[in-house]
């Protein structure tokens, strides 16, 4: 059973602004489980995801996957297993194909197909917010992740595309992965059949 747990009841992450961010967190995610994380803006949802991906230093709490402490896993491997998808994905290559090839290279995966609605040669700099989110989510779903940390991954998508994306994530979790999805959408947990966690 895959469990992403923070058993210390408190995770202390330090934001880049050096503001100490304190919040009691006790979060367990089981394999195949979908959880929607909700909370007001500024409550630290994105910071929690960053901390879980081990992108921010923390001086307390503990973080484990299948009982193995994050500190015992090489950082690159941890982040491939516990994969963060940002709300505003940065342009990582010039074209859609470039981003997919880069994602495949880093994931150790085979060549990734182009997501529906996008073309290989499309310049990443000119993608809309929703298209950029589609590309990021699409490549993350095709990597070796065991846990997906999704930071409002469909916030800029049109409703139809967002609905399709929700379906892909649900299918992915059925394959045994755990998902923590940050969202302001009150109906999302019900649509996904997910547990709701509040900050």
């Amino acid at each position: 059973m895959t469990r992403l747990e923070v058993p210390a009841r408190r995770l202390e992450a330090q934001a880049l602004t050096r503001e100490p961010w304190l919040r009691a967190v006790d979060l367990n995610l089981d394999r195949g489980e979908l959880a929607v994380l909700r909370g007001p803006s500024g409550s630290g949802k994105s910071l929690l995801l960053r901390a879980l991906a081990d992108l921010d230093p923390r001086d307390a709490g503990s973080l484990r996957l299948d009982g193995v402490d994050a500190r015992e896993v090489p950082p690159g491997r941890w982040r491939r297993q516990v994969r963060l998808v940002a709300q505003r994905p940065p342009a990582l290559a010039a074209t859609v194909r470039g981003v997919l090839d880069l994602a495949a290279e880093l994931a150790g995966a085979s060549r990734m197909e182009v997501p529906p609605g996008l073309a290989e040669a499309q310049p990443v700099a000119r993608l809309s917010g929703g298209e950029a989110q589609l590309l990021a989510l699409w490549s993350a779903l095709r990597g070796p992740a065991e846990v997906l940390l999704l930071d409002e991954p469909t916030s800029a998508m049109d409703p139809e595309l967002a609905a399709r994306a929700e379906g892909w994530v649900r299918d992915w979790a059925r394959g045994g992965g755990a998902v923590l999805w940050v969202s302001h959408d009150a109906g999302l947990a019900a649509r996904l059949g997910a547990r709701e966690v509040s900050l």
Binding site: L55, R79, R83, A86, P89, P90, A91, L102, A103, L106
Partner: peptide, 12 residues
């Protein structure tokens, strides 16, 4: 943003 995006994908 770009650097952390790559780190999140497992890059060194």
């Amino acid at each position: 943003g770009e650097i952390e995006g790559l780190l999140a994908m497992g890059a060194s």
